[in-house]
Design a protein around this nucleic acid. Structure first.
Length: 404
DNA sequence: TCTCCTTTGAAGATA
DNA sequence: TATCTTCAAAGGAGA
């Protein structure tokens, strides 16, 4: 059972009171195996969440145990290697952009070896986008500069749907880049396991030393210019300009070649932003969004995401496990390629430098606004409160009306 | 043009 | 340590 090796990335620490609070987050203890199953808050949370969701309810009820099990699994199967990698990296961060200790590299090598010979020996998801030759390199496939929507639809062409999931994927590369090994341009769907993990990543200058030898098949991508753009002009999909959303369509060679209108902006040095790796649900969303849009003729992402959230919970543990595994790999790869990156970097993305002052102010405003909003909702007697977090499940009599 | 909405999960911040 | 907050994607809606 391949998923027996899965790492589920640790326990989620907060949940939303979806059923009654309209998205207000409430604290939930993720059930732990060690708890002996006594703490069912997480499971209850799920049950509550879908109580009013009609047709889904039955299925959710049926899946209650499996979801609980999954949550247990997620929280308990901690991949120590991943954690230790991060910690090792963190410990070594004092000297940024330095060559990492051999020990760390050995560790990463160990990870790769483990992947090659261990859990990835029989890959649960052979078509994981990092691990295979993307279809765009095939004659009949197109590197669609368009968004993932298209590529998701393309899944019927023999490409695994998840091939298109990752933002660091082929979307941003020209067909058959000349620097790609020839075999990569010819082997259809041949995944190269973890040794190819870096195929769609680039390394920051300081990260070059950490890349495992096995990942060196795509050496060009390991050299990033100061703006995060590969010297060849191929931008890195995980690196985006500090402002604005990541627009995959714009990841072509002219990504940073601004039109004249933006000459003024260009004067301000922009620090490239390395995006967070996608979590399991995000990967799932990327895959299923197009399907939901087609089925429901919905366009609003908020509504679509609600549907996707329900469907996510309706998935079987095995189905979810696929995405957890993908997310785990992505985190791992991200960590290897950006060892000095921290999620915190994006809390105040682009705040450094001259252009950062405005962003800093904006970020402060945004934060303040959010806080105020929350305060408003708390002071408003009619608004939903975080009753569950405040009083707990056992004291629902103390909950306010909406939460109850 | 910018922000919000809406979802889950991961990770950092805070109490 | 527990809880809270932010950010990942997406794109329409509204300010």
């Amino acid at each position: 059972m391949w998923w027996g090796f899965l790492y589920f990335g640790g326990a989620s620490k907060s949940k939303r009171c979806r059923g009654c609070c309209g998205g207000v987050k409430v604290a939930v203890d993720m059930p732990q195996l060690s708890s002996g199953g006594g703490d069912d808050l997480g499971a209850n949370d799920e049950m509550i969440s879908f109580k009013d969701e009609g047709e889904q309810e039955e299925k959710i009820q049926e899946n209650a145990f499996t979801e609980r099990d999954l949550a247990d699994l997620k929280s308990s199967l901690v991949n120590e290697s991943e954690i230790s990698q991060r910690e090792a990296v963190r410990r070594g961060q004092q000297g940024e952009h330095r060559v990492f200790p051999d020990k760390h590299r050995e560790h990463l090598d160990g990870v790769s070896k483990q992947q090659d010979g261990g859990m990835y020996k029989t890959p649960a998801y052979p078509s994981y986008p990092f691990l295979m030759l993307p279809d765009p390199y095939l004659p009949n496939s197109s590197v669609s500069p368009s968004s993932n929507k298209v590529s998701v639809v393309q899944q019927s062409h023999g490409m695994h749907p998840l091939t298109s999931l990752l933002p660091y994927s082929n979307d941003h590369f020209s067909p058959s880049p000349p620097h790609l090994p020839t075999d990569m341009s010819q082997k259809t769907g041949v995944h190269r396991q973890s040794q190819d993990l870096s195929g769609y990543y680039s390394l920051p200058p300081g990260g070059v030393g950490q890349i495992t030898p096995s990942m060196s098949w795509f050496p060009h991508s390991l050299m990033l210019g100061p703006s995060g753009v590969h010297p060849t002009g191929i931008p890195h999909p995980a690196i985006v300009p500090p402002s604005g959303k990541q627009e995959h369509e714009q990841y072509d060679r002219s990504m940073y070649m601004k039109p004249q209108v933006e000459v003024k902006r260009e004067k301000e040095p922009k620090k490239p932003v390395i995006k967070k790796p996608l979590n399991a649900f995000m990967l799932y969303m990327k895959e299923m969004r197009a399907k939901v849009i087609a089925e429901c003729t919905l366009k609003e992402s908020a509504a679509i995401n609600q549907i996707l959230g329900r469907r996510w919970h309706a998935l079987t543990r095995e189905e979810q496990a696929k995405y957890y595994e993908l997310a785990r790999k992505e985190r791992q790869l991200h960590m290897q390629l950006y060892p000095t990156w921290s999620a915190r970097d994006n809390y105040e993305a682009g705040l450094s430098g001259v252009a950062g002052e405005k962003n800093k102010a904006d970020w402060g405003k945004k934060k303040r606004r959010k806080r105020e909003k929350q305060q408003d909702s708390n002071t408003d007697p009619g608004s939903p409160k975080k009753c569950r977090a405040r009083f707990g499940l056992n004291q629902q009599t103390d909950w306010c009306g909406p939460c109850r």
